[in-house]
Design a protein around this nucleic acid. Structure first.
Lengths: 240, 240
DNA sequence: TCTGCCAAAATTGCATGCAATCGTCGGATC
DNA sequence: GATCCGACGATTGCATGCAATTTTGGCAGA
């Protein structure tokens, strides 16, 4: 049974896609009315979606002044990728200890599809398959909490990772790294996997950084949020 | 300048407190009107708060059927604590490499306050100071992204950790572990810190598990969410 | 007594309206 | 000419209203 998402959930997905695909640029101000008209919805579900995306870190709320697409510094992206590496490390530990043969077979199948997309030079499909492999690895750890945090972090940097996948040499190397990872999974060699995954993400980051140099906020910038002109005043409303 | 939070942010804080303090029990259904009247607000900011707390994992949204306070299994709590350990491990790595002497001094000061509360047997104050120490350690890593994820995970298990702090023997031992951690911080001994923090959280978990055996959902329960009676129907609204 | 079904009540989802706040532009003052 | 001030338009924050869905209660039939 396909559980149809509520309207605001669909909106969350749509805006997330718009950010990932670059339709909404980092740092840009997103007015409610513009999106409302674009999606044909009213402001209420949109505002609910804003709150969710802000909690995820993709949007930044400016009280009384709307929202902007969050800008990430190079350091931010690096930190998030390091956290992803830690979580995937935790995932492979559990995977080696507890995954069923079926789950490992599923990972192998997804891996095969990914390699096939690589052979055909299908960049977008490869990217999605790559994501699917990483998510299957996390899923095999059988921790909903881990999967949730991992997914949230992945969403924040997906845009940059995609942009980083354009270098042909890196692409081929990434596939080779994945081959090694798959072998280590089949051997349930947790120690090796830790090292491989860490290296894999680290290598990826080098490219991401090079490709996105312009897109990313400079590391030293304190806060890319425009400062209010006047001083903020207190709200009068108080909750009981 | 104190930035007064918007109404829905205050509501988020209030509901979070209500969950942490046990006023809202895990698994209980939370109707909008009840909270609205209790806080003297209308449904709009409350619903926005719901979405944020659901994104954080404290609430679970049941489409068309309201929200329930998320129930965590023993495994969930264990997984979250392990993730916290990983993140704090990452934090101390950076702390050792980059923290200023001022930041370390601040940690030492908070640690001192915590010990003082322990000596006086002030349980709640100790608990808060303990949190402050852990947050100061993460803050010294100077990664807003890391801090954000760490804070989110901490919120999800705060309730259980507090309940776990009632065992006198564990309490004293926790303080001793903190003493060791502080020393390792002052020595900037990242390797030792990793081990200490991991052990510290693991020891805490043993008590948490024992104390909260009733509160936590049993590990094998698939989904604690009450099943709908009728089948779900499709929504008719579609976004453009 | 139990089951199935239908209608009423309760609750949620979304749209709209109004008040408060913010940004801008024009004019007065120094 | 620059700065400060105030009013206007635009935008956000919150409250309320209506439609849709779920839940409940009762009743008929087995």
């Amino acid at each position: 049974m396909v559980q149809t998402a509520s309207l605001h959930e669909e909106v969350v997905g749509r805006i997330r896609d718009m950010i990932v695909e670059g339709e909404l640029l980092a740092g840009s101000h997103v007015t409610e009315r513009a999106i409302c008209e674009k999606l044909g919805i009213s402001r209420t579900p949109l505002r609910e979606a804003y709150k969710v995306l802000a909690a995820e870190g993709l949007l930044t709320l400016l009280p009384n002044r709307g929202v902007v697409v969050s800008r990430l510094t190079q350091q931010d992206v690096e930190d998030i990728l390091e956290m992803i590496a830690l979580l995937e490390g935790m995932a492979v530990d559990r995977l080696c200890a507890r995954a069923s043969e079926d789950e490992i077979a599923a990972i192998e199948r997804l891996h095969g599809e990914m390699v096939e997309h690589f052979r055909r030079g299908e960049r977008l499909e490869y990217f999605k398959a790559n994501q699917a492999v990483h998510e299957a690895i996390v899923a095999a750890a059988r921790s909903p909490q881990l999967a949730k945090v991992h997914r949230g972090l992945g969403a924040r940097v997906r845009r940059f990772r995609f942009a980083g996948n354009v270098d042909p040499a890196r692409w081929e190397r990434a596939v080779r790294e994945h081959e090694q990872i798959l072998l280590a999974i089949k051997d349930r060699d947790a120690h090796l996997l830790q090292a491989l995954i860490r290296t894999h993400l680290r290598n990826g980051w080098k490219i991401v950084r090079r490709q996105n140099r312009d897109e990313l906020a400079p590391p030293l910038e304190v806060e890319p949020v425009p400062e209010p002109i006047g001083r903020r005043r207190r709200r009068k409303a108080e909750i009981a």
